[in-house]
Design a protein around this nucleic acid. Sequence first.
DNA 1: CCAAAAGTGTTGTTTCTACACCCATGA
DNA 2: TCATGGGTGTAGAAACAACACTTTTGG
Lengths: 250, 250
Amino acid sequence: MKKRSVVESVVNNETIYQQGISVDCVIIGFHDRRLKVLLSKFNFFHKWMLPVGFIMKDEDMDVAACSVLKNITGLKDIYMYQFHTFGSTIRLNAKEHRTIMAKIGLADTNHWLAQRLVSVGYCALVDYSQVNISASANEKVQWFNINEIPSLYSDHNSIIGKALAMIRTQLDIIPVGYKLLPEKFPLSELRIIYETILEQELDRRNFQRKILSTGYLINLGEYQRKPGQKPTALFAFDKEKCEEALQNII
Amino acid sequence: MKKRSVVESVVNNETIYQQGISVDCVIIGFHDRRLKVLLSKFNFFHKWMLPVGFIMKDEDMDVAACSVLKNITGLKDIYMYQFHTFGSTIRLNAKEHRTIMAKIGLADTNHWLAQRLVSVGYCALVDYSQVNISASANEKVQWFNINEIPSLYSDHNSIIGKALAMIRTQLDIIPVGYKLLPEKFPLSELRIIYETILEQELDRRNFQRKILSTGYLINLGEYQRKPGQKPTALFAFDKEKCEEALQNII
DNA sequence: CCAAAAGTGTTGTTTCTACACCCATGA
DNA sequence: TCATGGGTGTAGAAACAACACTTTTGG
């Protein structure tokens, strides 16, 4: 049996949730040389949206964000960080919003869920290959290439933009590829991540020199073979150093 | 007649406010070669705290933050930015909290204000000399040197820490001194701001070269005279460039 | 033999850091 | 004449940007 959607749960357990706040999650993965974002869509509504969660009254906000991630991907103990809080009153297209609310059985337009929300944006960088997408009965969940995102519900396009902008500023502080890439990977994959985020090409050799000088990477001495190419050296992140770096993020 | 405190207003106009959310404001000024923070204190409670505000249901969160600033300093049209949202459940010392609530006449411990709050941290850099402090009837408001802050209510010390950490990361992106300093100032004042934020001394000559190379500063060709010293060149920020830079902050 | 992508190194430019000497002033 | 703080310049080190040739591989 498929589970109920998050929003339905909230409607039916109104009193245990902190009113008027949601956590909106930008979940980013990397596959086939492309950065991807997880989006969800109700069967009865035409626009895709970011996975959303709500905060229980006795629950830390960070925990609430992580449980969105866990519900949708099965991943736990993943580092998520907050990047911005969206508190404009015009975020919400009232008509769209009520359409959705009505569909999930919320007729009461005075219910807080039918009104203005402040959304805290969280971002997670995850290993695509570890993700098991799980959706509720009346929704779909799917990866989208980050530069091929359709027009989303509410201000979700700009939330994604902000998440990327935030990652961009931290690109030389935190080991961004750490969670995105599998255990072993060639440097070219890491470079593509950087190029996608920065929206510019990077010199292969200079990138390599710079990224290796950070000390976060370990040359495994193993090689990946692809048809028609010279074997490529494989690298791994130094887990200890990366975890430490994640602790020190602001 | 002195006005009511913000919290009292909320208690008496519960329905017009967005529940469960506050905006906590770190208002920073510079005077007498020291960075300062504005703190407030209820007469009936022993700890100082950050100025707080609440969001009306039809009000943008950014606007709510600005109106806290305006109420307390008289300044308007000041750039404020959000730096983090604090959503831990243990932020609140329930006993302290109820003491305050009882004093302002809120006996109902089920009122949202008596329970868990999510706080959005905002930061403003202001011109100390333009500030006219205004407090409500039962509170004091006062500048504190930023490195001499007492133990504050709730997690407000760490909120200030986070604000400073955020400024630190943006020190070479945004013209931090722009709003903190008066129209005309010697470079040494700007350097002191940087030194305070970075918590380290900076080489006078290298700082000068670097800060001038950003192009945000204009040498006015005027000089300030102090007893026993060589006259000091005065500078001003290039307002246009600074405003543009503020727009582009993430 | 060719195309594809990887490995490797050099050079000039810019930026950063550290540092020293002289100057104008009021006491 | 002295202490204070400001003005200015240089040299070595480090980081950055631009760039070319060679290697392995499968087709």
